[in-house]
Amino acid sequence: MRVKSGRDGGSTLRFALLLTAASAALLLAGLAAGSDGWSLAWTDEWMLVSEIRAPRSIGAWLAGALLGFAGAVAQGLFRNPLADPYLLGSAAGAGLGVVLVLAAGGAAGASIGLAAAGALLQAGLVGAAFAGALCGVGLTLLLARGAARPMSLLLCGVVVGVLLTALSDLVMLASPEAMRGKQIFLLGSTGFLGWTSTAVLAAVLAAVLPAAMRVSRALDALVLGEASARSLGVPLQQVRLLLVGTMAMATGAAVAQAGLIAFVGLVAPHLVRRCLSVAHGPQLALSAMAGGVLLLASDIAARTLVAPQELPVGVLTAVLGGIYLLALLHRRQA
């Protein structure tokens, strides 16, 4: 469904409207997708709709939007259509953060008493996942000595990913309780998103999207190659740092609130680029919207496909994303 670029901006606007309409329709569907099948008796079950389905649906959209945005930044930054938001060690960092807090909570429970450990856990896990993701990316930047060379940044991302995962394993060896907790915490799931999570996700999206869009012309310039972008006076070093920062924030927030959700960040920007040719500024915004639509649609499917049981949404996105990429590959070969 390629939108032909007829008029300047016209196709972009049409695509944005399409995504907005899809988001609105899915949000309505999200409010109606109950645990016992579709239900529009909202007045009778107002509590369920306002306190569970609404924050969950909006939260799923926002988490998807953050992942779609982060994916678009990653693919633009690395000039690689297979780049995804978890590339720079954020996933492994989040995992390590969670494991450390769980292990510390276990150890603290023995020494400083339950009350303190309980409080640590309560506030700690979400914050730890977020901080861990940022630290993972920070470590990658440190090892790559800045964001100047994308290739070494990518390699360092892989190294940091392996390193931090190994560290998590090590911690889990010392305190096996943490393993189960990490598994529970990082399973991609939209089921536990409440209004607080939604507010956090919205705040992060509101901060990173405009910031990245302001420097998005630098991503356009990078299409010409590194040297050409520099010849245009683009302060690549600073811009890359800023973009990596927004990417880490977005990924960290999404992981902390909804666990590891596969493929949304990879597929959303793909979808946008397939449908229309557009500069990175609108591309970032549209990828965010597409990511939101994808994850919300997956969330609704996860809720309704096997109702009254529920599928973990991360499993569903992995399957759908895999199918999409396979289809893409098949079409390329054909």
Binding site: S5, D8, R79, R217, D220, A221, V223, L224, G225, A227, S228, S231, L232, G233, V234, R273, S277, V278, A279
Partner: peptide, 22 residues
């Protein structure tokens, strides 16, 4: 640049517009 590595989904006009970035 020599045999530019430029490639991708951007429209030609967007590419040319980059010349105005400075």
């Amino acid at each position: 640049a020599q045999q530019g590595e430029a490639d991708g989904e951007l429209a030609v006009r967007e590419i040319v517009a980059l010349g105005r970035l400075p």
